[in-house]
Design a binder for these strands. Structure first.
Lengths: 327, 327
DNA sequence: GTTGTTTATGTAAAGGATTACATTTTTGTA
DNA sequence: TACAAAAATGTAATCCTTTACATAAACAAC
């Protein structure tokens, strides 16, 4: 395959001129530009990113760390990241960590070895110490889940307020016994959403009952059904569930449907994230919508700015309560 | 950041020796190896992929073309590809084409420009001419959807047989009026699955009715509910639906549930692909499982072999009918 | 027709690794 | 001890661009 030298030779100019044409620099005379463009076409020349990247000490690749590729929560975010990345001539490497430190490390290595110019971390289970030390030499942005340790810039929503509004919505509908399906409190968002839940209950003088708060290992479908079974066995059964993820809520819904419990009449249900499927269930799911796509575009812009040495600020975006059939 | 020269200087050896240590070549004396390793540690040296890749004329990146990242059909395949790629020290660049030729071209450019070493194409809407001409100089594998034009190696399942078996299953359950929810026949798999559908009907002397065959633009949830509405309005309403994708089937299910039609008693339902959600619906969905993960690993191995100049053979994998609550 | 500016083009170094080939060191043997 | 063969290490070219700096060409002004 032809390289820049052959193009230069055929066009009768120097490689510098070819490079200038390639990069659209306007110092080149129209006449020479034409000669070069002809030669490029004749030789079917495509500039090699390998050479260019080495010379420019960049890879134009952004790493996106997610726990699992099949988690619908991340889809729109990723689309947002991708769109922005492409706009700025970057490509994204989607990295599924499985929340497995070993895999995580494979991917971190890519930025150490200059295969990637920066990282957008969306894995709640990320090793924050590694991330911190990596962020000293490399550009990193946290998206959605974050830690304030290490001063790594982040973009997120106000989780506490979102949970607060969801629970308040249930209370306004007359519910007094509201269960919380939360994930492990080692995650910041879990703690924040619990705060919101409690805040709403307290505001309306409702008791905060430990037995109504179910913690699940993961945010999956099965965890949702299991949590529901626990709730259903309580003497004083709640009349509403606020689940911190749609998948949890959909698991609950499946369980409730199977048990013949009518939703929303006998049990109201709110999810979190507004994944596509939350609108495909029967009944459709009331949920909190985060501005996913925007979160992605913002994260990508922040990262690209950081890579270019600009200063970036943390960003908190707005959420929205989508009221549907399940409440 | 340190480079190989500084390591060599500090260790008191030549860059060649450092490189040999880096690449685990055993010609190096244990004593020198130690010196080099010390220097590497002291300088916190990480070899740059940029330099290495340029020298080796490779990027160690595989392109994976999919129409949409949110289509659950691809999840397991991608996981399979990724696992195999990592085993062989490749990374995958997940490319969402949106079945948009312009985007497709951005990604094709990456392999032209040596940012990627090969392509696994899973986009049914891919421009086959471009793919063909690209395959003359670059390594390409088709996964799941394929065209025999251009002799590009592929891995797939026997779609006709899968459809045949699904429909036969319905017939054995006593159904005589079976609808087909198919996608556009410009796609090979659509034609093949229709063949299987017809083959089963004919084998049992059942009529093949045009009005029972609904074609949808996309394989999404909405298309499924719309198709169901059409079916429900027929004078001679079918008693079973075979949908060529789970999303179509889940859309149908939602519509049937809303209309108060009992599944499977009044309407049996079979999907295709065994996506995660097919097991989360109420009732759970009978479906055809393709060996997704394996399809991914096979595709990746084939591509890597092709990149390394080996000959690769087309592969047809086995599928499986999963009988669940909806039939 | 000089001289001085501006503008266009060319030269060569740099970026960071790998490796064929050359050279040096070690080992083995007579 | 001397020499040959084998093993370890070093030198320098190569992969392909970009770009600072040098040079050449074009043009303007006197």
């Amino acid at each position: 395959m032809a390289n820049i030298n052959e193009v230069a030779k055929l066009a009768g100019v120097s490689v510098a001129t070819v490079s200038r044409v390639l990069n659209g620099q306007d110092v080149v005379t129209p006449k020479t530009r034409l000669k070069v463009e002809d030669a490029i076409k004749k030789l079917n020349y495509e500039p090699s990113m390998l050479g260019r990247n080495l010379r420019n000490s960049e890879s134009r690749v952004l790493l996106v760390l997610i726990p699992s590729i099949s988690n619908p929560f991340y889809f729109e975010i990723i689309k947002g990241i991708e769109a922005t990345a492409l706009d700025y001539n970057y490509n994204i490497l989607l990295c599924e960590t499985d929340s497995n430190p070993e895999r995580e490390n494979i991917y971190f290595d890519l930025v150490r070895k200059k295969m990637a110019d920066g990282i957008i971390s969306m894995d709640p289970a990320v090793n924050i110490d590694t991330l911190k030390s990596l962020s000293e030499k490399h550009s990193i942005i946290q998206c959605s889940e974050y830690s304030t340790e290490g001063n790594i810039p982040y973009v997120t929503i106000d989780n506490e307020d979102a949970a607060y509004r969801a629970v308040k919505h249930l209370i306004k509908l007359g519910h007094q016994k509201i269960a919380l399906f939360n994930s492990n409190e080692k995650y910041l968002y879990a703690r924040q959403r619990k705060e919101g839940y409690i805040k709403a209950l307290k505001e309306f003088n409702l008791p905060v009952k430990e037995e109504y708060m179910i913690y699940t290992d993961q945010l999956g479908f099965d965890n949702g059904s299991q949590a529901t079974k626990k709730i259903m066995n309580l003497k004083d059964r709640p009349t509403a569930i606020f689940a911190v993820s749609d998948l949890l809520a959909i698991g609950a819904l499946k369980e409730l449907n199977s048990a013949g419990v009518n939703v929303p009449d006998e049990m109201a249900l709110i999810g979190f994230d507004n994944i596509d499927f939350s609108n495909m269930t029967h009944p459709t799911l009331t949920t909190i919508a985060q501005p996913m796509y925007q979160m992605g575009t913002v994260a990508a812009s922040m990262l690209i700015n950081k890579i270019n040495g600009k200063h970036v600020e943390n960003t908190v975006l707005n959420h929205e309560l989508l009221i549907r059939e399940s409440t």
